[in-house]
């Protein structure tokens, strides 16, 4: 099991918005809901790989910017009638920091 890695703080992500964590294997999108929950999903729509981080966030879902598929943030599953699923990552908030469970280390800017 990988370790929890701090990737940023809650303030870094806009309410009802998203930021991406760049990794060698593609981006992971961090979404923040109105209730300040954070979810982490692959930033690739199951439809045609649209960047979900650029979509409109509402309740616990995001609408993909390319063709409006709706993806549930809790499960990563597309809302019917669309079918498909994106990978989700374990994420937690602690003392205002966002922690992602992933086997990696930062390469670019340091996070405080």
């Amino acid at each position: 099991m990988s370790d929890w890695l701090k990737v940023g703080t809650l303030e870094d992500v806009p309410v009802l918005g998203a930021r991406v964590v760049r990794t060698g294997a593609g981006d992971i999108a961090l979404f923040r809901t109105k209730a300040d929950e954070i979810f982490a999903l692959d930033d690739r729509c199951p439809h045609k790989e649209g960047p979900l981080s650029q979509g409109i966030v509402h309740d616990k879902s995001v609408t993909c910017p390319l063709h409006n598929w709706k993806i549930g943030l809790t499960t990563g599953e597309a809302v019917a009638p669309d079918e498909g699923c994106v990978r989700t990552y374990p994420v937690k908030l602690e003392g205002g920091g966002i922690y992602l469970q992933i086997a990696a280390k930062p390469v670019s800017r340091a996070v405080g």
């Binding site: 992500v13 990794t23 800017r109």
Partner: peptide, 8 residues
């Protein structure tokens, strides 16, 4: 990006 990571 909020951060860039490399795999370990």
């Amino acid at each position: 990006p909020i951060i860039e990571l490399e795999s370990v």
